[in-house]
Design a protein around this nucleic acid. Structure first.
Lengths: 260, 260
DNA sequence: CCAGAACAATACCAAAAAAATACCACTTGT
DNA sequence: ACAAGTGGTATTTTTTTGGTATTGTTCTGG
């Protein structure tokens, strides 16, 4: 039981010289212990008095730190009972891959899917692309843009940019960009995706066959190789009225009393 | 904490020979540190006394430099509290894996967060709610609605519906709905979330202080108990121009994702 | 040279945050 | 019912923060 507590105090002592306010040091120690999984959701913290005694600070100071974390939803307190780590939402992993796979997702809904090419070619990189893909102005960028269509209704515009070195001939892409990358041995292992909302511009709205100004989902994805290098940079625009992104979240349960 | 400070002093020493007035040198140093992003919006500067001591100049001189920047809107001072880099309106992002911790997430960016209650009460359930929550028409539904505000800018509207049996008194919710549920022993273990885009209606736009018709992110979340029963049903609307949802994806991993 | 302005330093004031003390109220196990 | 242990709260003291008035010092222009 005290191993979790000791972890808190260990990191606490470690930053004792920092000069920062005591309650901030303690708050960080507890936060770290939670984020590192040393104390899991549902686990009890040592009592405020215990922490105060062991850390040799006043209980009110301990309380200040704890209350901050309670306000932030990280801890939960029960009067007369104790202080516990609050449950936390975590994304379940299978849903992640589902986020990327447009074709699969549509097929699951029984929709006939096809794509129309808007663009496939090599260009001089834009400043944006140079920055993100790490290109010099003398290198070329491969741009692949297509319109995603389900049941004869245009649903999304996808515009991908890649270094020409990994996709020398954009025209020979089959149905899957990732399959083409696989062939050249450039397989992304990680991607970061931003989802935001924006009103559709005139040209995009025309392609998606909706009135301009309608809300659309704007998704920007940056894919990384195992080496950490950026390989792909995709900006997609989805019709807001016709597509939902579904994420399944899992709330971590109380950790078993056994050792992790 | 001293890394930001050191950056200030580094550039300060660098121009020490310039012969320019001390307060101008210092002002430029601070200004550069801010513009280069070494110290971001919301970050605290070292105290006037700290700067004075470390730079070996009088506190009043430090003050002269700081006040210039305050007048220019670059810094903000709070009596008894400290000097801070003025907040800029920028797009905020939230990771999909931490959807529940709005407060924590914002606080980490140095934004002053608060919520305004729009509604907390018990009502007869709407057909929607009866369907999703599995209520009969004789049961009551607890509705909790709030406006999420960061730096005095409204960012999101959250409307949650729960069975009154799990939240008999909606008025006593603290900052975290999940914390309140934890207290009553109703712990959700799973949630499904849909993200879509929609144009904001008049009333929502008014609450978020944007023109009607602007694109917003519409998020619908249904949380389940371990028993499979639906416990919570939340509809959130985020300002599309001020909020990003970020998801980190792992692609096609034969990797055995072990321990986070 | 000498005003006058800009600059810089000293000393003290006021507000806020941080920390400590003492006491209250709820929960739990016997 | 009780006692021990828990979090909850009010109040005070100390420390740290920015705010201000005053004085000395240096540069500048006539």
């Amino acid at each position: 039981m005290s191993d979790a507590a000791d972890q808190i105090f260990a990191t606490l002592k470690h930053q004792a010289q920092s000069g920062a306010p005591l309650y901030l040091q303690l708050r960080k120690s507890i936060e770290d212990a939670v984020n590192r999984g040393l104390i899991g959701p549902g686990d009890a913290l040592p009592s405020e008095r215990d922490i105060a005694t062991k850390a040799d600070i006043s209980r009110v100071t301990v309380r200040k730190a704890v209350q901050d974390l309670v306000k932030g939803g990280i801890l939960v307190q029960r009067h007369g009972s104790g202080t516990f780590v609050a449950p936390r939402m975590e994304r379940v992993e299978q849903s992640l891959s589902r986020l990327t796979s447009f074709t699969e997702d549509m097929a699951r809904r029984g929709m006939a899917v096809r794509s129309a090419w808007l663009d496939r070619g090599l260009y001089a990189p834009s400043p944006d692309e140079m920055m993100v893909l790490g290109l010099s102005s003398s290198e070329l960028v491969a741009r692949v843009a297509r319109l995603r269509i389900a049941n004869d209704t245009p649903l999304a515009i996808e515009r991908a940019s890649l270094s020409a070195s990994v996709l020398p001939d954009p025209a020979d892409i089959g149905s899957s960009l990732y399959a083409a990358l696989e062939l050249t041995g450039n397989r992304p292992v990680r991607a970061v995706q931003r989802i935001s909302a924006a009103n559709l511009g005139d040209s995009d709205a025309r392609l998606l066959e909706v009135p301009p100004g309608i809300a659309g989902l704007h998704i920007e994805r940056i894919s990384y190789l195992a080496s950490g290098k950026v390989i792909e940079f995709t900006r997609s625009i989805y019709r807001g009225d016709a597509y939902d992104f579904v994420a399944e979240l899992r709330l971590t349960g109380p950790s078993e009393e056994g050792r992790p």
